[in-house]
Design a protein around this nucleic acid. Structure first.
Lengths: 222, 222
DNA sequence: ATTTACAAACCAAGCGCTTGCTTGGTAATG
DNA sequence: CATTACCAAGCAAGCGCTTGGTTTGTAAAT
């Protein structure tokens, strides 16, 4: 399978990127009060939905009184927004590293798919799910604000897809292809359970590539 | 449920199927009080989400007092469930007709994709979006109940995909392919706006087929 | 080393409002 | 003349958030 991993040392570690972002104050340290709060919020928002999660639920999960939450955030919505903003920041950095780690277009695409699948189904999965499925719960002003951040992220995808299209390796329209991929990949959060079925993230990536007509015949995984 | 109805005139009309289901009491007549209520509920649930929609909102949209809702449904959740159940019933029937209207595997797949895109983005779109994105708001008992109905629907897809795989026209795993398609197609509800961009449902179907490597080079739609 | 000063982090209590839903009665329908 | 459809009013519970006061961490001043 075409995946060289550490080629010289181009592949930057996930955790290294994370540390750098914490240092720059772009995401909160999960050890800090704010960081723990956001992590719990992400889990709760994904499991029960933003609206069904009360500030009392969240406070109990963190181990403080409900009123004390408002020392850290002014409103409940601000918590949701913070989860989304920090998630986008982290993932943009991760995806950027993923693209830059490869040279060929097909490899870049694979790296992007693999990275997004990891974002969705890995440690940041809760937050990613919130980002995708709790969109409507943001106020309109917050929505446009978050949307601006997403554009950077989306540009990464479009650049790679455009290259593939020019090279004749992609038939469909670039924007539509990206949107289809967004849907398909984010939907995995509802069904992909690595512990059962024995399908790894790499295996899943292979399947997506196979569906798009890349990488020849990939056999059945089961 | 399996009624093939008249299959000389192969393409059964959407509206004919609808009428038949109403007659069998499997979905409510949109002219009835219950039917209007469910239609309004679907719209509101999609636009604002189930939790953000209050019984007062819903009652106002229908033009009655909030308490009067509970003459038709015992709880708010029962309304959500009814929207979902009736949507699945209708769409299962529509999809069944779509598959039976074609003979070749590729054509069957195209018909399924086209039909699901229409379900999602057409008149039943509100209800479909609710079905997909308000899943968590159902109680667990209701979830399993609705899930059983979905299985029939899903079987239609899997049968066609299996045939394609046997014929060597599909590389990826059948179950995974279906799940990817579910995500990709249902996600269209968030971005596909037929009025702008000039992309028709048929055009969109072509794009999906092109992404899967079918139907040769489909040019850019824009 | 102990005191002083001060802000950040948190608690206990509860306010004002909205929520889903109930109740007892009235109007329409067939 | 009973059944169905609705209204007017409101209840109990839960909601996001505020308030006033107490603890805790930190660092300079004594």
């Amino acid at each position: 399978m075409g995946q060289p991993s550490l080629q010289l040392d181009i592949h930057v570690k996930h955790s290294d990127i994370f540390q750098a972002l914490i240092k720059d104050q772009l995401v909160s340290d999960p050890a800090s009060a704010r960081g723990r709060l956001l992590a719990e919020a992400a889990t709760l928002f994904r499991d029960k939905g933003y609206e069904r999660t009360t500030v009392r639920d969240l406070a109990a999960a963190v181990g403080i009184q409900s009123g004390s939450l408002f020392h850290h955030f002014r409103t409940k919505e601000e918590i949701l927004k913070a989860v989304m903003v920090e998630t986008i920041r982290l993932n943009t950095a991760v995806m950027q590293a993923a693209v830059e780690g490869e040279t060929e277009s097909e490899a870049k695409l694979r790296a992007l798919i693999r990275a997004e699948l990891e974002s969705i189904n890995g440690k940041t999965g809760e937050a990613m799910a919130v980002l995708v499925y709790e969109w409507r719960s943001l106020s309109e002003v917050s929505q446009t604000e978050v949307l601006a951040l997403r554009d950077v992220y989306e540009e990464l995808w479009l650049t790679v897809l455009k290259r593939l299209k020019n090279e004749g390796q992609l038939n469909a329209d670039v924007f539509i292809a990206r949107r289809m991929l967004t849907g398909a990949l984010s939907w995995t959060v509802t069904w992909y359970k690595p512990e059962r079925g024995g399908l790894t993230l790499d295996g899943l990536t292979d399947q997506v590539m196979a569906l798009l007509g890349f990488g020849g015949a990939a056999g059945a995984p089961e």
